[in-house]
């Protein structure tokens, strides 16, 4: 039995893109990790909306 390869591949590509773009934009490794963590949460929970994602992504907890 195989895992959903598309999800794994998508996660892998996304992480890679975050690292590349994060370096380019001057994001810290902590911020890059935060983006990846939020992405994984969003992948696991399809009910997450933009408010939750924004709040989790924003450094100050968001508004």
């Amino acid at each position: 039995m195989q895992k959903n390869a598309a999800d794994s591949l998508f996660s892998e590509i996304f992480c890679q893109k975050v690292k590349e773009m994060g370096e380019g934009e001057g994001l810290s490794s902590e911020e890059q990790e935060r983006i990846i963590k939020v992405f994984r949460q969003a992948m696991a929970n399809s009910y997450m909306d933009e408010h939750q994602i924004y709040r989790k992504l924003s450094s100050g907890g968001g508004q």
Binding site: F14, G26, E31, L57, S58
Partner: peptide, 18 residues
């Protein structure tokens, strides 16, 4: 500004990944 940058990076990374 930082949040915009993070959200923008996340969105652009996702777009590029797709």
């Amino acid at each position: 500004e930082r949040n915009v940058l993070i959200c923008k990076t996340a969105y652009q990374a996702m777009d590029a990944a797709i």
